[in-house]
Simulated assay, not measured.
Amino acid sequence: MKNLEELSEIARAVAWGATDILQSYYRQDSETPNLDIREKKDGPVTAADVAVNSYILDELQSILGNAEFGYLSEETYKAYLEKNGKVALTQDWVWIIDPLDGTRDFIDRTGEFAVHIALAFEGRPVLAVVAWPEQQKIYYAIRDAGAFVESRDGSAVKLQVSGRNILADLSIVTSRSHRGDRLNQLLHKFPCQNQLAVGSIGCKIATIVEQKADVYIALSGKSAPKDWDLAAPELILTEAGGRFTRFDGSALQYNRGDVSQWGGLLASNGCCHDALCGDAERILGEIDSGLK
């Protein structure tokens, strides 16, 4: 098998190709977009999602095959689920792919959408790529080798989260659309009140590794973030010096069969991570007690 450095180069090249496809859809005449938008249970799907998904899978599978690697993709998982049920892919090495993270932001033209490509080994990410097309940037990481941001000319800069460590000074990056009542109440009582609204989870984590924010919280309700939402951003954050865990401090696991990451999740620059998780768990407990 190719080493992780070679696999990262392949994934980054594929991500740049996916960026070009997304921008070809995004740059269409806004009055006559050919997006073929379909509303589904977990959110909208467009022709851009489908086209980029096919491109990424075709590229990776043509280069790497299907023997050593499994492929867990947002746009193909439903068919896999119908055939196999909630059963994890059998390969130890699994590509986890979100062809368009932030579809609603893509449709609403906020510019805050991303492509996620991660490679997990035995349920944990070892390689990650997040492309932010409108910024013409690719964020990437290999386990134990740091995180970097690559520009279109191929130049790369190493990433490091901020060192801010006073709770009141921390900035929390939040969603514009995926905010239920429990999350709004949690954010209202949270010690970090400096808020920055950003779309895609990949773009949110990019703001943290670029030191423009420090904290992100995901809280499941009727639905939960999926493996493909989190695997790539998680590794990029942790390799830049941050942390990404459940509220109880436990690590996320991927390719478990159930792709939903239930419960409370917190990403941060790491400086006050345990305290923030404790605050989130306590506040959420108070909120839930009040709802009974």
Rank of each mutant, 00 (worst) to 15 (best):
E5S: 14
S8W: 10
V14S: 01
A15H: 10
T19A: 11
D29S: 10
E31Y: 13
D36V: 15
D36I: 15
K41E: 13
D42V: 04
V50F: 07
V50P: 04
V50N: 09
I63V: 11
S73P: 05
T76S: 07
Y77R: 07
D92N: 02
P99S: 02
D101A: 08
G102C: 04
F106E: 05
D108L: 15
F113I: 06
H116V: 07
L119R: 03
V126L: 12
V126A: 14
V126R: 15
L127H: 00
A128K: 01
Q135L: 14
K137M: 05
I138R: 00
Y139L: 12
I142L: 15
A145S: 15
A147N: 08
G163S: 08
I166P: 01
I172T: 02
S175W: 08
R179F: 10
D181R: 15
L183M: 13
L186F: 07
F190Q: 00
V198G: 09
G199F: 08
I201V: 15
G202C: 08
K204H: 11
T207A: 14
K222L: 12
E239T: 15
G241D: 12
T245I: 06
R246V: 02
F247G: 04
D248H: 03
R256C: 09
D258F: 03
V259H: 01
G264Y: 01
N269C: 04
C272L: 11
L276F: 05
C277M: 04
E281F: 06
I283R: 02
E286D: 15
I287D: 00
K292I: 08
